[in-house]
């Protein structure tokens, strides 16, 4: 097994493990936002935009993994 045949495996591991953390993070953000809306339903509009933004920043880490797996 030489280095060339391991490249697809490396890509898969980079993307798979790299998506693990952001996935958990986005789930936590969503859970907390739901909790906040449940506690105070009127704040739904105010919670939504910061929730989207913080989800986007969590997602950015998965995107770095994607970049790495593209460059491998």
């Amino acid at each position: 097994m030489d280095a060339e045949t391991l490249v697809p495996l490396a890509k898969a591991i980079a993307m798979g493990v790299g998506a693990l953390g952001p996935g958990l993070g986005i789930g936590l953000i969503g859970a907390k936002a739901m909790e906040a809306i449940g506690r105070n339903p009127e704040a739904a509009g105010k919670v939504f935009v910061p929730m989207l933004l913080s989800m986007a920043f969590a997602e950015a880490i998965a995107i770095y993994a994607l970049v790495v797996s593209f460059t491998l």
Binding site: A56, A60, Y64, L66
Partner: peptide, 12 residues
């Protein structure tokens, strides 16, 4: 990183 993450998020 802003440019990278913005563009790759939408593309991805």
């Amino acid at each position: 990183a802003k440019v990278l993450s913005l563009s790759l998020r939408l593309f991805g």
